[in-house]
Design a protein around this nucleic acid. Structure first.
Length: 318
DNA sequence: CAGCGATCAAACCTTACATCA
DNA sequence: ATTGATGTAAGGTTTGATCGC
């Protein structure tokens, strides 16, 4: 299945799958992961033999069309509408809490069709996924309730029931939207957080946690990539070191096979015979070594640079 | 108070194997 | 006996959530 996302602009085909092939190492982590999810979902679809057309998702919030025309897919999931509109719902105190926090309850009749769309869109979604999504908001706002699941009373446990304690899994659409947001900005300011939460029909805390986890896991992946790179680099250096050691050994072996005087650089032999000044001219030394004829350089005595200069002549005259 | 790292645990995926028509 | 479909248990992976710093 292919999923398209648009934020109100002209719908365009998904491109991030192609992008994954061009990704740079910085992006390696999450793109790979995301791609993996997609492929696994595709394979799942192959198994089920689904031939659903690509879904182009319009994420423009609260568009008039969506508001006035509930998607037909909702009708196909009676359990979803039931869950959303009259399902388990929040317990009264939770509703109050959420309302006090300035958030409209997703189960209230004021819930936008856009929000419902998010719960149901995506033809590749299984009934189970939809059911899970429908359980999303009825879940207690544990962090805001203070204390988390550990501090829940046994009465509360009973009230919530086993099904409501099921772990939330974000829908593909929600994940994709969060991914896009993350690509733009890996951190959120409170305003962005609230906006995203509203758009995705999630609690701000959920968005916050998602971004936290996303950052942590991206970092982890990046560390793995870096580690792999350093490992390769280390191997290269080791190999280079081995090669140089070998070369050095060969040179040493070559050295010991030659007479003693050949072991010394030619620079020590370039003394001007007339003035007895040592010419530390590297060119002459290089010439001597390069010619590989140190002996010749010795006997003939490479021409001292001073011999050609006037000053040398003067010095010699003195 | 937000962010981070470590961790837990539910959901999900993969694989191997058994059973049956 | 062989084969394809189906079910299932086990182990591994992903990911939402929590806790302490």
């Amino acid at each position: 299945m292919e999923l398209g996302l648009s934020l109100g602009d002209t719908p365009k085909p998904l491109t991030f799958i192609d992008k994954t092939q061009k990704m740079v190492s910085k992006d390696l982590g999450f793109r790979m992961e995301f791609n993996g999810r997609l492929t696994s979902q595709e394979s799942e679809e192959e198994k089920s033999g689904s031939s659903d057309p690509p879904v182009q998702l319009d994420l423009l919030p609260f568009s008039p069309v969506q508001r006035t025309q509930p998607p037909s897919q909702l009708v196909r999931f009676p359990w979803l509408t039931q869950n959303l509109l009259s399902g388990p719902g929040l317990r009264p105190e939770e509703e109050e809490r959420e309302e006090a926090a300035g958030q409209s309850s997703p189960n209230s009749t004021t819930v936008s069709s856009f929000q419902m769309d998010f719960s149901a869109y995506g033809s590749g979604r299984s009934k189970r996924e939809v059911e899970i999504a429908s359980l999303n908001h009825p879940e207690v706002d544990m962090d805001q309730g203070g204390g988390g699941s550990c501090s829940r009373t046994s009465d509360e446990e009973e009230n919530i029931g086993l099904t409501n304690r099921k772990k939330l899994r974000l829908s593909k659409e929600q994940s994709a939207f969060l991914e896009d947001s993350f690509k733009e900005n890996s951190t959120l300011n409170p305003k962005q957080k609230l906006g995203l939460a509203k758009q995705l029909n999630l609690r701000p805390r959920q968005v916050e946690v998602w971004f936290q986890n996303r950052r942590a896991r991206t970092k982890l992946k990046q560390t793995e990539v870096d580690c792999e790179f350093l490992k390769k680099f280390c191997e290269t250096l080791t190999e280079e070191n081995r090669r140089l050691q070998k070369e050095l050994q060969e040179l040493r072996a070559l050295k010991t096979s030659k007479p003693f005087y050949m072991q010394h650089p030619a620079t020590t032999l370039t003394m001007c015979p007339s003035c007895e000044r040592v010419a530390s001219n590297s060119a002459t030394a290089a010439a001597a070594t390069a010619s590989e004829n140190t002996e010749l350089a010795l006997t003939k005595s490479i021409l001292c640079p001073f011999t050609t200069s006037q000053s040398h002549a003067q010095q010699g005259g003195q």
